[in-house]
Design a binder for these strands. Structure first.
Lengths: 216, 216, 216, 216
DNA sequence: TATGAATGAGAATTCATTCAT
DNA sequence: TATGAATGAATTCTCATTCAT
């Protein structure tokens, strides 16, 4: 007779959830370090400290796992974006805040950048197949539209700015620097990842965005 | 007597060069479509129309081949950059020209973007091991420095702009849009690759850069 | 309800052991027939009746497999040597017995000879890397030392004989004949593998060893 | 017009002979270091400093090359054996001389041992196919027969000794020690290749052979 | 005689995935 | 839910050999 009582159903469920999450995190790390093609199911299992077979129990296959990781990552950044509360700030401050947030998020979540690269290498097939692609739309586009409009109305911002274009620009300024920092460093022989370099970059990007947006 | 003259030694030599080049181009396409991990030596051979063994005859292994492709790609963009002759233009025009060139180059060479992504996924190890990493430094940094200085002197540009920061920003504005166009399109439900979208993007980027650089 | 009881855990475990052993035996045959360089992993799998992938599941690679085979072979001969119980015999009889045992072991285990040759071709690198190299030391050296001492004391043996030298000589007399029997036969045009030839050789070797050891 | 006169026919012949010999020596080294299965045609070409294609020009294929190497090696030891002139010595001295010669030859030509091992691994197929196998028969067997007979007649040697058995024994005593020195050293933890160890071995072997042959 | 280019067959090893329990 | 054993299909890389000159 087993001395340990079998777990109650809800406990088992909790274990299941925990295992799934452990796998997802392990997979996220593996995919972001090696890309989809370079990731190894074996390593994911090892990272998760779980049996490889279990991955297939919860996720259909490598592709589905990658899709799940991608969705999770998008969900996470979207949640963070939602917390920003930009509309409580003056338009120029809201933009400063957004530039700063984008920079810091990418800095703190380098895996997000490489995951996006992988997703694009595969032509976003994993998003196209996702049921929840639309949920992944950034709430910031609408917010940004409103900020730009307010700024235009109060006379501080120039008019005619497409929020999506601006969103892409803000993202691009951080993204390129961080995503390509290895090649940039190798080629320009300059360490781009020191705290000083970081603060210079943030300051530069803020200047660029505000320089563009502010009615001189 | 053979009716066809035997190829001169230089000619024969050129066969080897031609094979090597064919392989390099095929490899560039394969790596850029699938990444380093997803690329298949078999497919490279097929694309090149050459025996797989020959790839190993000329290049040590997959890694070395990737490195060669990367070097070639850098060399190519650097050559094009060199042709730009920005110093013959007025500072503001020179910046417009540079934004436009960067955009068009990335647009015409999507493989360059994905190769860079792969290189960075591997922490630029392939550049670090390259003998010629330094040759790959962009001539534009110096040129950009001179343009910025001239603009400052003639009173059209603000001062204190780091050429490297500006270079990275110009690149980033194009890069993010093009490299991530699949995920962006999937999520925002907007086709970013129409001619109209392209010209809007170019116009936006030019405004951003000049809006930042011009003294009010 | 399944009519067959599921194997107990120890049973299942034994499956793994059995597979490993099957592989080891197949590998031993393949390596001994073709040498390390000439052995084929595919053939080992076929001989074992198991999937080739399984070999890599249990053994890191060809080299590690060879090492495992080598260790197993040494362990086997050492076990047999241990059973000899030479100290229960009179010194001269003990030597006769040892010569006979060595001869018969080599005769019955031709794979041992070729494995040793392979190991030496590779400068015993596989033993050097073995954790258990020391366990493979022959118990016979000590035993032989005692036998020689007893014989010396009872006046039948000459003194001053190094047990290791004698051990090597006893082994060498059988080894050369059996390991090189193909070239010897080809060159001298005499079949060395008939029963008669065998018994003549054994008799000759015994004479050589005793002729040397006995105090005239 | 070429400033260098084309080589005279006999010179070309000399070049051809030289190339063949260079290849044979390179092949001997390669085969003896790696065995037949582990030898690489590429490395042989590199060792020879000649084009790989040339090997195929002179030798049909790898097997034929191995056969040629083997024949050459046998020819060489047979030549040296022929120079020994044992019949000019007293029987016991002749045997001492032979033991010593065998030992030194193996010591100075370790490649001969590994080549023999390879040949035997392949069941002496390469000798069987050789036209000149018979030439490779050792002249020592006859000589040894005569020595033994003289010794018997002059009362120093026991009778009834088979020269072939004795030849094999003399060879085996040296062979095992030298051919297996790596495994022996690894297992017994004793360096067998010091000058002191060598002279002890030679002395031991001489004692063994003479102890056996001498009439009490 | 000599050589650089090229190749098909094969070899070791890897990988995602499934079986059996 | 969880796992160790097993596998087929690749995948990278190697090798002896031949082509073309």
């Amino acid at each position: 007779m087993s001395p340990v009582a079998p777990p109650a159903p809800e406990e088992r469920q909790r274990d299941a959830d925990r295992s799934q999450n452990t796998i997802l995190n392990a997979a996220r790390d593996e995919f972001s370090e090696h890309g989809l093609g370079g990731a190894r199911m074996d390593r994911i299992a090892t990272r998760a400290g779980l049996n490889k077979r279990l991955i297939y129990y919860y996720f259909a296959d490598k592709e589905a796992l990658f899709q799940a990781v991608l969705e999770q990552s998008y969900r996470h950044i979207r949640e963070e974006e939602r917390k920003l509360n930009l509309l409580g700030l003056k338009p120029a401050d809201a933009l400063r805040r957004l530039v700063e947030f984008t920079w810091n998020y990418y800095l703190d979540h380098p895996e997000f950048l490489t995951l996006l690269n992988s997703a694009n290498l595969h032509r976003a097939r994993h998003l196209a197949e996702s049921q929840r692609a639309r949920e992944l739309n950034s709430p910031l586009i609408a917010t940004l539209g409103e900020i730009l409009e307010r700024g235009r109305v109060d006379g501080t911002f120039r008019g005619g700015i497409d929020p999506l274009q601006l969103y892409v620009s803000i993202a691009g300024l951080s993204y390129f620097y961080l995503s390509n920092n290895h090649t940039l460093s190798a080629i320009f022989g300059r360490d781009l990842m020191t705290p000083k370099a970081h603060s210079e970059r943030l300051s530069h990007m803020t200047d660029v965005i505000l320089g563009y947006v502010l009615r001189n």
